[in-house]
Amino acid sequence: MTTPTASVAPAKPPGPEGLRPEGPLPTVTQAAVPFIEIETLRAREFLPAAREALTSLIAEQGQTKVIRPVFNWAGRNSLFPLHWGLACCAIEFAAAFGGRWDAERFGVVPRSSPRQCDLMIVNGTVTWKVAHKLITLYEQMPEPKWVIAMGNCATGGGPFRTAYSVVPGVDKLVPVDVYIAGCPPRPEAMLDGILKLEQLIRERKE
């Protein structure tokens, strides 16, 4: 009776052809982040080390180049939209935060005060009566701030474009970053718009 040994490897990896590379798997020889050596640190040692690494990097490359990606990373992962609804798109807006789509997994949490928000999702028909309130809310939001026009009405007036009481597109009032088409857009479309906005923030230089 022979005992199988672990050193005897099969000649070819199991499974269909071409799915696995030949030879041993590559090992990580370099740190994923080039400028910080990865080592195990105690918690009280980590903060001084991180501060020192950041300080030297800032001295080397300049403050904007180092801080901006960190700032963008933090901002795009904690977008706080203003919690207000104008028309039927607000139903889809609400559904996107329910259990089925759960927009909070992207860090999107609606807040009720514009002073705590950096994202305004205009979800519905904007009338001239509410236009002044919309501008006031936008101006109360702290910088940096973004606007998503959700649905056809907010994008271009929708079926009410020629009506006497409807603003033909919310971009006549505030600058819009992302337009989401649909009447109304499904929650997946709203999440896709939020991810598009996250891409915009990721590429933001200024």
Binding site: W128, G157, R161, T162, A163, Y164, V167, P168, K172
Partner: peptide, 9 residues
């Protein structure tokens, strides 16, 4: 007249 959104704006 209905179709004058620019003037309305």
């Amino acid at each position: 007249k209905l179709h004058e959104p620019e003037e309305l704006e």
